[in-house]
Amino acid sequence: MKKEYDINALITRFKNKDKIALARLITIIENEPDKVNEIFKHFENTNNESYIIGLTGSPGVGKSTLTGEVTKRFLEEGKSVGIICVDPTSPFSGGAFLGDRVRMTEISLHPNVFLRSLASRGYKGGISRAVFDISLLYEAFGMDIIIIETVGVGQAEFDIYNLVYSVVVILIPGYGDAIQMQKAGIIEIGDIYDINKKDLGGEDIAVQIEMMLDDTIFQSGWRPPVSMTNSISGDGVDDLIQNIMDHKEHLELSENLIEKKKNRFSYKIKELINSKIEKIISENFLDENGILSLVKNTLADGKFKIYELIHNQFKNFKFEVKDKD
C-alpha cells in the first residue's frame, strides 16, 4: 500500500533543513512524477545555485569510491554536497542495488552530505528520469555541490552531458586502445579525464588520451586535462578537484556556464514534453493491451508488417491545440 505524505508539511520541514523531509520529497518525485509541480511551486523564490558535477565510466572503474574521496575534499572546504548515484536496475524488483552506499559509508552520515541512490529503470543513458528533479531539490535545499554518478558510459550514453556542468570521465588501466575509447564516445563528452587505480599503471592510457586531445579542436576554448588518481589511498584526488574547479572558472569567465544551464533546461523541457505525449498515447490510444494486440497481429501476419501496422494506427490519431497562447 502506497503511503500518502502531506506535501505542505514536508515543505515546511524541508525549508528548516530536515533531511528526512528531503528524502520523502525525493521519494514522491521518483514515484509520483505528476506531483512534481505541486512540490516545486513552493521554491520559486529560491536563488541558490549549486555547481553540478558528473562522474561517469564503465562498471568497475571505481566511480563510487572516487565520488567518496572527491566529496571528502569538498567537505574539508566547508561545502555541502548532494550526491545522486544512479544504480543498475534489478531485473526482478525494479529497484536499485544500492551498492554505492556500501562504498560511501564514511561520508554518508556527514551532516553536510545527502546521498540518494536511484534505479536507472532501463532509461537510456544510464540516467534515471528523476535525476534532474532531484538535483533541483538539492539546489532548493542549499547544496553547494551536486555530484551525479551514472551507471556507466557506452556508445549511446551521453545524457550526463546534458545534466551537469563538468563531466569527469573515469578510466582504468587495461580499458583498451585509442580506437575503443573513440568508439565509446568518451572523447566527445568529457571535460576532465581521470585514470583511476593509478597503482596498477595507466600511463599508456593517459598518453593515448593526451594525443587524441592534441588532435581535437575545442570550440569552447577548454582543452580537457588528464589526471591520475588512486581513489583508495586518495592519491591524485586533489589534482582532480583542481581540474574541476579550473573548468568551473573557465565556464564562468567565458559565460559558457549560461549555455550549459540553457542546455540543461532545454533537455528537461524536451523530456517533459515526450513524457506527456507518451502518457496521452498510452492512456487514450495505445495501452499495453493494444501493444500486445499489435504484437499478435505482427506474429500472425509477418514481422515485416510491424511498420505498416503502426503507420495505420496513427492515421486516425490527431493532436489538436486549443489555444496557442
Score class of each variant (00 low, 15 high):
G185P: 07
D177S: 05
E252V: 15
I84Q: 15
M228S: 14
I189F: 06
G176S: 12
S233V: 10
D100V: 11
V81M: 15
I195M: 00
E210P: 00
I170R: 07
I107P: 01
L55G: 02
D246N: 09
W222Y: 10
S93I: 12
S117W: 00
P91H: 02
P173K: 02
R103D: 00
V151C: 05
Y161A: 12
S50M: 09
I241C: 09
D144L: 07
I7K: 07
T216R: 10
A178F: 02
L55S: 01
G99E: 09
G152Y: 07
T56Y: 15
T65R: 05
L292Q: 13
L10C: 01
F40T: 14
K63M: 11
I26V: 09
V295E: 09
F317E: 08
F265D: 02
S231Y: 01
L213Y: 02
G290A: 06
E30N: 13
G126F: 12
N243R: 11
L25W: 12
I26T: 11
I53M: 07
V164E: 13
T27E: 15
N284D: 03
I20A: 10
D287V: 08
I291V: 02
Q313Y: 15
G152Q: 09
I39V: 07
K41W: 01
Q313P: 15
S220P: 02
L253R: 15
G99V: 14
K262Q: 14
I291Y: 05
D159G: 08
D239T: 12
N47Y: 08
I160T: 13
Q219A: 09
P88R: 13
F314W: 02
F158G: 09
G126L: 06
K17E: 03
